[in-house]
């Protein structure tokens, strides 16, 4: 970033990196759309209890089972007479929370390991690299499923499994940034001046790695949402009565009514898609803003 900011000083008055990023982001159509979608989703999640204060899990009406969309139930009702709309908007709370936590876990662990590997090199780098290669030898979905098969199905376990599969991405990303950044003059200088390792790591190297990490983290929220829903669909994730979108689809499929009451499957799926889309777009926009050289 530093070098880019310097080149622009030649032409116009100095601009801080942050303002430059904001300006670039606002030029990105996908970024703007993604931001709006994500904000709407977050708002929906926050306001879900206000919209429909009743409990989406236990509020049921047996007589109103599997009713198609109507003025009263705009998304129809499920096999227990629960309002699909209510369940879907409450589902956004689960999905966003799971997405954020899963990404936070993989980001923290992965970035730390990547920093360590890139900075200290030596056997640490070899071991961490080995670990990364092994993890990446399994397709992500399969690895997550295998982990849940070992630890047992639950939303928490699914979340942890999904975050584990994402760790190698952050290791590789951070390590490569650190490897190039540690050759930079000012970091060489800091090291030569005898700055403590952790100071160099977290004060100097980490900030360099941040932009691509932020971009990756945003994209990861989408991936995590998708994978968690997939585990939920297979019955290996969220358990009842949680209104998790994947579990709702699973109910509809395994209860046999997905195909004769299609609203029970259309809306949860749409929301999964919109959530993933929102964070993918937002990630694209952030990449344009923060990391314009990255290959698209």
């Amino acid at each position: 970033m530093a070098s880019l900011a310097q080149t622009s000083t030649l032409k116009r008055p100095p601009e801080t990196p942050t303002r430059l990023a904001v300006r670039r982001f606002m030029k990105s159509t996908s970024g703007k759309i993604g931001l709006v979608l994500a904000l709407v989703l977050i708002l929906v999640a926050l306001l879900a209890p206000v919209f429909k204060p009743y409990d989406p899990a236990t509020d049921r009406n047996y007589i109103e089972r599997l009713k198609p969309p109507s003025a009263q139930h705009i998304f129809g009702t499920d096999n227990l007479g629960r309002d699909v709309f209510t369940r879907v908007i409450h589902g956004s709370r689960i999905s966003l929370r799971v997405g954020l936590i899963a990404v936070a876990i993989s980001l923290t662990v992965g970035t730390f390991l990547g920093l360590v590997a890139g900075y200290f090199r030596g056997w640490l780098e070899i071991v961490i690299g080995w670990f990364t290669d092994i993890m990446l030898a399994f397709p992500g979905t399969l690895l997550a499923i295998a982990i849940v098969a070992v630890v047992g199905p639950s939303l928490t376990n699914a979340m942890i499994a999904v975050s584990i599969t994402q760790i190698p991405v952050y290791i590789r990303l951070t390590r490569s940034v650190v490897l190039s950044a540690r050759e930079l003059d000012y970091i060489q200088a800091a090291t030569a001046l005898g700055a403590a390792n952790n100071r160099v790591l977290f004060r100097h190297l980490l900030p360099n790695a941040l932009p691509p990490i932020i971009v990756q983290a945003t994209l990861s929220i989408g991936t995590a949402t998708l994978e968690t829903a997939a585990l939920g669909f297979l019955g290996l994730g969220a358990q009842p009565p949680a209104p998790e979108w994947g579990a709702m689809l699973s109910d509809a499929f395994r209860g046999g009514y997905a195909l004769n009451s299609p609203w029970t499957m259309i809306f949860p799926g749409l929301f999964i898609m919109f959530t993933v889309l929102a964070f993918n777009l937002l990630g694209d926009g952030l990449r344009d803003a923060l990391d314009p050289r990255a290959l698209r």
Binding site: S30, G222, L226, A229, A230, F233, G246, L249, A252, F253, A258, L259, M265, I266, P268, G269, I272, M273, F274, V276, L277, N280, L281
Partner: peptide, 15 residues
């Protein structure tokens, strides 16, 4: 392509 990468495959299959 944007919608495609955001698609839950199990949902697409059902649709």
């Amino acid at each position: 392509s944007l919608v495609g990468v955001s698609m839950p495959v199990f949902w697409l299959g059902l649709l």
